[in-house]
Design a binder for these strands. Structure first.
Length: 750
DNA sequence: TCCGCGCGTATTTTT
DNA sequence: TACGCGCGGA
């Protein structure tokens, strides 16, 4: 059993303790994946049928990686392990067993966009105020309920929920929830949360089914246990209740998905539910330098809610953490890019040894620009997924509708695409009629003469005939041939082809790329089922993170840019955690309560612990956000790091003069904050009530800011020694340009 | 029904 | 900024 060699004692324990409940508390960098991999290999090596193993991971990527690693140890058998995300595994089971709860195997999976769109239509139909009942608010409320296994019936019968909603002036959420659920069901569709919720229902109401899977999954493993919600926890508990061979691996310090219903409470419940539980702590960090581990520990120790553990390392001390202060987001980008460039030169690093981590996707821009300018290759992970692009969603909607004629959201997307002269009025009418007559959308469509009549009926009739041919294609042909036929005959491909704009060209190529992906799916010998339905199943649960994993063939040497959330589970030699500013990180929306702040702190902990050798933290003293410049304070998290781990590196310019104060411009920009909207609209500057003439600011050396105009940029008309001088300052680069101005000033004095 | 314009407003993380 | 929505004209 050579795979046991090289493991430390707790790791070895975690691998060989196979029978009975086990909880592995795995600190960052403690070799968790290795342990999980060997554990599964160990089971199979000792005669356990891979088919009896269920391994639940957080991302598809994690599952695939683990499968590959297990394959290296035990070979082909690894293919038969049931390994995947909660959502994909239970979607698979629901495909098989869904008929018992009223779904067919072709049910659609609504993504968040579909769900919100459905909520939007319901709010409209109920004539509710869509400002009050914003789709995102309603969605998160419903989602939260489902993750706690609260059905709409309970929601509506329990006065607590209603009282809560009423306190926010939204008493109708329960009603929307009910209609939303009914509409999903009618559409033969489930949203993400339903995949878990309905699995719970299935196992609760159909003991024979539960029994079948309880006996099938003799060994259950859950990775990233700290990120599971109640709904997921209950599923695993049920599944493991016969054999009790359940092993969970997690780190409470890395729980960063509470916003999605993840509950650290699960760890505590786990101890309560399994009195014979064995707990193993993996505390030795193999990844990072002493400095980084120490910094991470010092930060996380500020949290009250945590399990005690002592992460340590025998690695070398390594470099101090560098703290970079920049004056603007643009400068931050340049400084980081410069730093990467220098480190590459000095230490012969590859691009791929660097990662830039940020709190929000929108922050990637300044780094992209700076890296591009320096000719450093980079890849941005996350953001808008390929499968979320409009044209891709459009074609997929056609494919979905060909298979599931009741898919309301797919229907709404494609019915008038390309234009068929069927407008919003008709679409709304169809939906309303379907609901009033208690028939499906498809019934209304195919019987349009009866239900609608008139001119629209002809168009609808043609459409339903078209869909029927697609249905036949989907049934008789393989996924690729069917998709190609649909893309062509729907007119979608033609319309995109005729759009010769740059975006249009890109969209056409994207659709081609989707078709290629379907072709690959069909050609892949590992896929037995080559139907369109099978492809859609694969695709509906893919995320942005999975895409980069699949592009593995042409791995380019690139700096990685991504959010901290996406970085979980990854490691890089050099990590930059950027935008370390109060309100940005921790995010201003998150610091309402202690627990929210603590989640942000865990996020910071995750960021720090991605680094192996060198960690750099940066922040800007002013930042361009949402079309305006904002003064920024350094993040409180910076003060929480053990000061012995940090050394400062200032922007060279920033030292000489503070942008705002020195030039008096801070006031002006601040004043402008209060009148932002007006300014943007009228394109002229309107002083706010507290803007007194005395606020007119002297730049220096007789340059007087006489007049301010805000439009696309900030226009300063400067009067003084150089009477006619005007400086046009683009908002985006204001920080930088203002500095240039002050340089100019100095030169005058010379 | 469709299209374009202008306005207002939202800004987190992802299965 | 950038996106979505509503309104008005064709």
């Amino acid at each position: 059993m050579d795979y046991l060699e090289g493991l430390n004692e707790p790791q070895r324990q975690a691998v060989i303790f196979t029978d009975g409940p086990l909880m592995i508390i795995a600190g960052a960098g403690s070799g968790k994946t290795r342990v999980l991999t060997y554990r599964i290999a160990h089971l199979i090596y000792h005669g356990v049928d891979p088919y009896n193993i269920l391994a639940l991971t957080f991302t598809n990527k994690a599952a695939n990686e683990m499968r590959e690693r297990i394959e290296k140890v035990i070979g082909e058998d690894a293919k038969n392990i049931w390994m995947g995300t909660f959502h994909s595994i239970f979607a698979k089971i629901l495909r098989i067993e869904g008929d018992k709860i009223g779904y067919t195997r072709d049910f659609s999976i609504y993504d968040t966009e579909d769900s919100k769109s459905l909520i939007k239509s319901i709010v409209k139909e109920l004539n509710l105020d869509d400002k009050l009942y914003k789709a995102s608010t309603v969605y998160s409320r419903i989602s939260g309920a489902k993750n706690r296994l609260v059905s709409y019936r309970e929601y509506n019968s329990n006065p607590i929920y209603r009282a809560d909603d009423e306190s926010y002036q939204r008493p109708e959420i329960g009603r929307i929830y009910q209609i939303y659920q009914e509409r999903l069901f009618k559409a033969n569709a489930m949203d993400f949360d339903d995949l878990l919720f309905n699995t719970n229902v299935l196992f609760r109401d159909h003991l024979d089914v539960l029994n079948k899977y309880q006996h099938k999954f003799k060994y259950v493993m859950v990775d990233e246990f700290q990120d599971t919600n109640i709904s997921q926890y209950l599923i695993t508990r049920k599944l493991a209740s016969v054999y009790q061979n359940i092993a969970v691996v997690g780190d409470d310090a890395q729980s960063i998905y509470a916003f999605r219903g993840a509950d650290i409470q699960n760890i505590l419940n786990f101890e309560r539910d399994y009195p014979t539980l064995k707990t193993i702590r993996l505390e030795q960090n193999y990844r990072s330098t002493k400095t980084i581990v120490q910094a991470a520990n010092s930060v996380i120790s500020k949290n009250q809610a945590q399990l005690k553990k002592n992460v340590w390392t025998s690695n070398e001390s390594g470099d101090l953490i560098e703290l970079v202060k920049a004056t603007s987001d643009a400068e931050e980008g340049r400084m980081i890019a410069q730093s990467i460039f220098e480190d590459k030169m000095q230490f012969k690093y590859k691009n791929a040894d660097f990662a830039i981590l940020y709190r929000t996707n929108a922050q990637s821009r300044s780094f992209e620009e700076a890296l591009r300018r320096m000719g450093i290759r980079y890849q941005v992970v996350g953001g808008l997924s390929f499968y979320q692009r409009r044209e891709i969603k459009d074609l997929i909607a056609y494919l979905r509708f060909a298979i599931n004629h009741n898919d309301e959201e797919a229907f709404k997307r494609i019915i008038n695409l390309p234009k068929r002269g069927i407008g919003d009025t008709t679409i709304a009418k169809i939906v309303v009629i379907a609901n009033e007559h208690k028939v499906s959308i498809w019934d209304v469509l195919s019987g349009s003469m009866k239900y609608i009549g008139g001119r629209a009926a002809i168009a609808l009739d043609n459409f339903s005939m078209l869909i029927k041919t697609f249905e036949i294609a989907a049934k008789q042909k393989n996924a690729y041939d069917a998709a190609l036929e649909i893309a062509k005959n729907s007119g979608l491909l033609k319309e995109l082809y005729e759009d010769k704009s740059i975006e249009g060209l890109a969209r056409y190529e994207n659709v081609q790329e989707l078709l290629n992906a379907i072709k690959e799916f069909v050609d892949n010998p590992e896929n037995e089922d080559k139907t369109l339905g099978a492809f859609l199943q694969e695709v509906s649960l893919l995320t942005t993170l999975d895409e980069t994993a699949e592009e593995g063939e042409d791995v380019k040497d690139a700096v990685t840019l991504m959010t901290i959330h996406s970085a979980k589970g990854l490691e890089f030699k050099n990590v930059f955690v950027v935008g370390m500013e109060e309100d940005l990180f921790p995010s201003q929306m998150m610091i309402g309560s202690r627990s929210e702040l603590e989640e942000e702190r865990r996020l910071f902990y995750v960021a720090i612990t991605r680094a192996e050798k060198k960690l750099t933290l940066s922040y800007a003293s002013s930042r361009y956000r949402f079309g305006r410049i904002k003064d920024c304070e350094p993040s409180r998290f910076l003060d929480e790091i053990d000061p012995r781990c940090v050394k400062q590196k200032n922007a060279s310019i920033k030292n000489s003069f503070g942008v705002g104060e020195e030039l008096g411009l801070k006031n002006l920009i601040k004043t402008n904050h209060t009148t932002q909207q007006t300014v943007a609209k009228k394109q002229t500057y309107k002083p706010s009530p507290d803007f007194k003439p005395s606020d007119t600011t002297y730049l220096a050396a007789g340059m007087k800011v006489e007049h301010l105009k805000f439009g696309y940029g900030l226009v300063l008309e400067v009067q003084g020694e150089e009477k006619d001088r005007k400086a046009r300052i683009n908002f985006e680069e204001a920080g930088e340009k203002l500095l240039l101005l002050s340089f100019a000033k100095l030169k005058v004095h010379d």
